[in-house]
């Protein structure tokens, strides 16, 4: 095949300037997205675009606290994205639990389950802070330090172990099957 290393700077530039976001608002931080996308702050200046399909998205914004139920969806959606992909955690909750530090039902350390590139502290982080985070991730993409997708591949066993510890093994199947009786009941009605 063709050796593409010569073009790698161009690719990195394109990746940096064309971050498509997965529209997956997990928590209260989602409300910070509208001002970011609309005329006040206008993220589209940097080529960023909210994109509902994870298959063509690059940047996964975890906007706020994460519960186990959401985390399952986050992991599945994250794994659907093609490499290279980046994760930005948004607010204190995914970082260390934030105000839910003693909640029985919130994930305190998101980076135990999926790798995170940039974390923005604050509760809530203002749009300016988010934009600072985005600037940071762009810098990291350019100098090659935004390598969470590589880490996820390399340390997949470790992440898998943590996920399984939380949800129990074979959780995907179990989660899927859980809804089948409910769907069946609906059908009969």
């Amino acid at each position: 095949m063709v050796d593409w290393r010569l073009f790698e700077p161009l690719f990195e530039f394109a990746r940096k300037r064309s971050l498509w976001i997965v529209s997956f608002c997990t928590g209260c931080g989602g409300i910070e997205m509208p001002p970011l996308m609309t005329s006040r702050y206008d993220l589209e200046r940097f080529g960023m675009m909210a994109n509902p399909a994870p298959r063509m998205a690059d940047l996964f914004l975890i906007t706020g606290y994460v519960t186990p139920k959401t985390l399952k969806r986050i992991i599945i959606t994250y794994e659907l994205q093609p490499d290279p992909k980046y994760v930005m955690a948004h607010g204190s909750c995914p970082l260390n639990g934030g105000v839910y530090w003693d909640s029985y039902n919130a994930i305190k350390h998101l980076d135990k389950y999926i790798p995170v590139d940039v974390v923005i502290a604050g509760c809530m982080p203002r749009p300016e802070a988010v934009m600072d985070g985005i600037n940071k991730i762009m810098e990291m993409i350019e100098n090659g330090t935004a390598d969470s997708w590589k880490r996820y591949k390399e340390n997949y066993e470790w992440y898998k172990k943590n996920q399984d510890e939380l949800f129990g093994e074979g959780w995907r199947e179990r989660e899927a099957r859980r809804w089948i009786p409910w769907l069946m009941d609906k059908k009969e009605e």
């Binding site: 399909a53 994870p54 298959r55 399952k72 599945i76 899927a176 099957r177 769907l183």
Partner: peptide, 14 residues
């Protein structure tokens, strides 16, 4: 089964 269903896991029973 490995398609995007709004993040929900699915099996062939769906």
């Amino acid at each position: 089964t490995d398609t995007y269903q709004g993040g929900n896991p699915v099996t062939m029973e769906y």
